[in-house]
């Protein structure tokens, strides 16, 4: 099952390697990982999306918690939370397809941030299902490049 794990960690070198090590030692591939400072600049939040056996991931979360540089860990699986991801996507366009692409952009409330004769660069944010949907819709036109931030998440309330 897919888990979204949020960890508050000391904003220090080496922390990322320690956290990544707990997953890589088990041969888990991290789907996405996003890191940034929190309201307290000495603390970073890492949001990790990973697929794996529930019991194994429970153990991983406990072990994350045990790391000296980790302050708090939450697994959002089954919890009430909001999540977002931002993508930048360069899609091939020409006179014929431009209009259709613009329509898709509008439906998904995405934004055009650059436009050239043969391509358009689009910025979109949303939950993973929304982001996946816009990528799917644009794929037939030819995606030249795609960059995703990885998911960030926060508990509701």
């Amino acid at each position: 099952m897919k888990h979204t794990i949020s960890a508050l960690v000391e904003n220090k070198s080496g922390v990322l390697a320690r956290i990544a090590g707990l997953f890589s030692a088990r041969g888990f591939n991290i789907d996405s990982l996003a890191v940034g400072e929190t309201q307290d600049t000495a603390i970073s939040r890492m949001t990790i999306v990973v697929r794996g056996d529930d019991a194994v991931l429970e153990q991983v979360c406990k072990q994350l918690n045990k790391l000296v540089d980790v302050i708090k860990v939450q697994d959002f699986a089954g919890k009430d939370f909001v999540d977002r991801e931002l993508i930048l996507l360069k899609v091939s366009t020409d006179g014929k397809t431009r209009h259709e692409v613009l329509q898709i952009v509008e439906i998904f409330r995405a934004k055009i941030i650059d436009i050239k004769a043969k391509s358009m660069t689009i910025e979109a944010t949303g939950s993973d299902s929304k982001v996946d949907a816009i990528i799917d819709m644009l794929r037939p036109f030819g995606i030249k490049e795609l960059a995703r931030t990885g998911k960030i998440a926060i508990a509701r309330g």
Binding site: S13, G14, G21
Partner: peptide, 16 residues
């Protein structure tokens, strides 16, 4: 050595 011993120490430090 901090990289090498990361999974076999309770914690480690490289003093900068």
């Amino acid at each position: 050595i901090t990289g090498i011993t990361r999974p076999i120490t309770k914690h480690n430090y490289l003093v900068k």
